[in-house]
Design a protein around this nucleic acid. Structure first.
Ligand code: FES
Ligand code: FES
Lengths: 141, 141
DNA sequence: ATATTAAAAGACTTATTTGTCTTTTAATGG
DNA sequence: CCATTAAAAGACAAATAAGTCTTTTAATAT
């Protein structure tokens, strides 16, 4: 469903949501170590997220990555979109050229419900809310 | 979610379910043309399905691929399993090493529920039932 | 038997994704 | 200003997935 880059991106953003803020930035190394993902690969992903204004970054000593109030009140859907593009939201489970309820494939009904369910959550829940739930319920990253 | 091979495989099996039987076999060319997928690539996929006994094949003149009564009463889940292996049924949406309700990732609740929905359908519906529905509702392949 | 047909098998190429490494740029503190 | 720190940028390399092509094997009909 998601590419590896996208999975790493989601986890990294949530990690930042839980652990960082304006005054305590976090470096790639710490994130990569915590999430157990390749450091340099993650660096490129974080760069891309920063370029799309989904996370903030500052160079130099005491620099690193962090989320501002704006970032943390956004939804995860932006992250998915910036990593994997729009296809995920609209593509047919069987790879047919269009996915539509008017002209559905044999698996459309379930597939559509599945996709919409996940999208709905990612769209209508802020990163902050997710981060709170992660801390409250001690969810994995 | 599914690899391209797996998508082609599902579509090909459903195509055979609708159009073939013991007495009217179908060649790779016809299937590839109908589904608009690369012929030689599909050939390898059909070979693999045949080797796993999910479809039947006969060489030579008037040969081709087809489904027997046994094949058509099986479920699609076998096809997925034989192409993409068991990961799809058990892997975490965020790529964490294990997916479990005991130790869930932040997206587990939705991801799990909806995944189970698709798996349930693929597991408890026979290929024959699906084929009937495809003809009745004129679904795409 | 033999020519024909179509799948089986396997070698190979291309494309995409994932991962690594090095160099450059910018911010900070002394 | 200068040394240090950490992200940005970009060039590569490896791994996997997707697709192509050729040769071999088996079934059929003449
Ligand atoms: S048409 Fe296939 S999932 Fe919607
Ligand atoms: S733990 Fe991530 S989907 Fe179940």
């Amino acid at each position: 469903m998601f590419s590896k880059s996208c999975k790493y991106a989601i986890r990294a953003v949530l990690y930042l949501a839980v652990h960082s803020d304006e005054s305590s930035k976090i470096g790639v190394k710490e994130i990569a170590d915590s999430l157990e993902v390749p450091k340099h690969f993650l660096a490129k992903i974080l760069q891309q997220l920063a370029k799309h204004n989904l996370i903030a970054s500052i160079k130099g000593p005491s620099g690193g990555f962090f989320l501002t109030e704006t970032h943390i009140n956004a939804s995860l859907i932006q992250v998915v979109y910036s990593m994997d593009g729009p296809e995920m939201f609209s593509s047919c489970l069987l790879g047919l050229p269009v996915c539509s309820s008017d002209n559905p494939c044999p698996l459309h009904v379930q597939a559509f419900a599945y996709r919409e369910g996940i999208i709905y959550q990612m769209k209508h829940q802020t990163i902050k809310e997710l981060a709170n739930r992660i801390e409250r319920e001690e969810l994995k990253l």
